[in-house]
């Protein structure tokens, strides 16, 4: 829920837009800035290292309401931060002639790792108290340092490798597996490794888009199975290291763990508020009581995400049809 404050805030939401970005003085193509996704892809293939990105910003505030309201000395600040590097910097926007607030903020590459977050904070004096936060932008902008396509939604990384001679040495130990899921190798995103030498031809079938009915059945059921493995592993990883409030209530994590939990918790513990469900799971896990019983629910939630039932229904139908058509 939105915290309740002892002073009035601006009722309307505040809009922040990244108008353009220049990277070391060169303009970033606008196709790498997405207003709908509120995401900027800073990585440019074929371009070498860079040091500094300057973001040109524009914000629209409900100026009339602010003028009529109890706020004074209103300041509009852009806030750039990244949790994993614990960096936070701000820049002031100034009101332009056209009524919008404009300004720029610099993103120093060396201070960020993967995804910086840009939001807008409106600060002003209320009831004699200066410097209160009186408004902020609804959804923040993401500045992705590793992507060349501005996509808010992240995808789990999938790596195809020959495990026998993989550069990641630990993979060699799994040379007989068809796939493995690694949730801690890269703190930013889980990785699914597909073994090109584990089951001869399997990866080719998975990558195919056509082929025989049997091939499709194999592709559908296998991808579902891999996905289920991945979701179970991700869920366990996500709940295994939670920060807590004073009273022991776990805090929803950030990063990839957040969407994983938000997507799965409603199926793991239906009918609960997210924080409440998280609390229960954390209790089960740390005390051990009910943890084993919970596994069934986690299996179920992961199965649902992986569309196991749907894919298997399709597979059974196909097999059935094939058999009938045989002479």
């Amino acid at each position: 829920m939105r915290p309740f404050l002892s002073y009035p805030r601006i009722p309307d939401t505040v809009e922040l837009e990244i108008v353009s970005v220049s990277v070391d003085g060169r303009d970033l193509p606008y196709s790498q800035i997405s207003r709908t996704e509120k995401t900027v892809a800073l990585h440019q293939t074929g371009r070498g290292d860079w040091d500094l990105a300057t973001l040109h910003l524009k914000a629209v505030l409900p100026d009339q309401e602010i003028a009529d309201g109890p706020w004074s000395d209103v300041v509009c600040l852009a806030v750039l931060s990244e949790n994993s590097t614990n960096v936070r910097s701000t820049a002031r926007l100034a009101k332009g002639r056209d009524g919008t607030w404009q300004g720029k903020i610099e993103l120093v590459r060396g201070r960020h790792l993967r995804r910086a977050v840009l939001s807008l904070a409106v600060v002003g004096e209320v009831n004699g108290v200066p410097g209160r936060a009186i408004g902020k932008s609804e959804a923040p902008w993401y500045l992705d340092l590793k992507e060349s396509t501005p996509r808010r939604q992240r995808e789990i990384k999938i790596v195809e490798a020959d495990f026998r001679e993989a550069s990641e040495e630990w993979l060699r130990g799994f040379k007989d597996s068809a796939w493995v899921v690694a949730t801690v190798e890269d703190p930013e995103i889980p990785i699914v490794y597909l073994n090109t030498s584990g089951v001869e031809g399997l990866v080719e079938v998975l990558n195919g888009t056509s082929g025989s009915a049997a091939e499709k059945v194999l592709r559908d059921t296998t991808t579902s199975q891999i996905a289920q493995d991945a979701w179970i592993a991700m869920f366990h990883t996500a709940v295994s290291n939670l920060d807590q409030d004073d009273d022991g209530t776990p805090i929803m994590p950030t990063g990839w763990q957040e969407p994983v939990l938000k997507m799965m918790l409603p199926d793991v513990l239906p009918g609960r508020q997210l924080t409440d469900a998280l609390r229960e799971i954390n209790e089960c896990r740390t005390s051990g009581a009910g943890w084993a019983e919970l596994q069934t629910n986690i299996q179920f939630a992961a199965g649902k995400r992986s569309q196991i039932a749907k894919k298997l229904t399709g597979a059974v139908r196909t097999v059935d049809r094939e058999e009938r058509s045989e002479p």
């Binding site: 808010r152 990384k157 999938i158 790596v159 998975l206 991808t223 891999i226 996905a227 969407p259």
Partner: peptide
């Protein structure tokens, strides 16, 4: 980036209907 069929099942839906 891996098989499309698998990628489809592994999307992290930030705003999706799930929430």
């Amino acid at each position: 980036e891996g098989p499309a069929a698998l990628r489809e099942l592994l999307k992290l839906d930030v705003f999706g209907p799930a929430g």
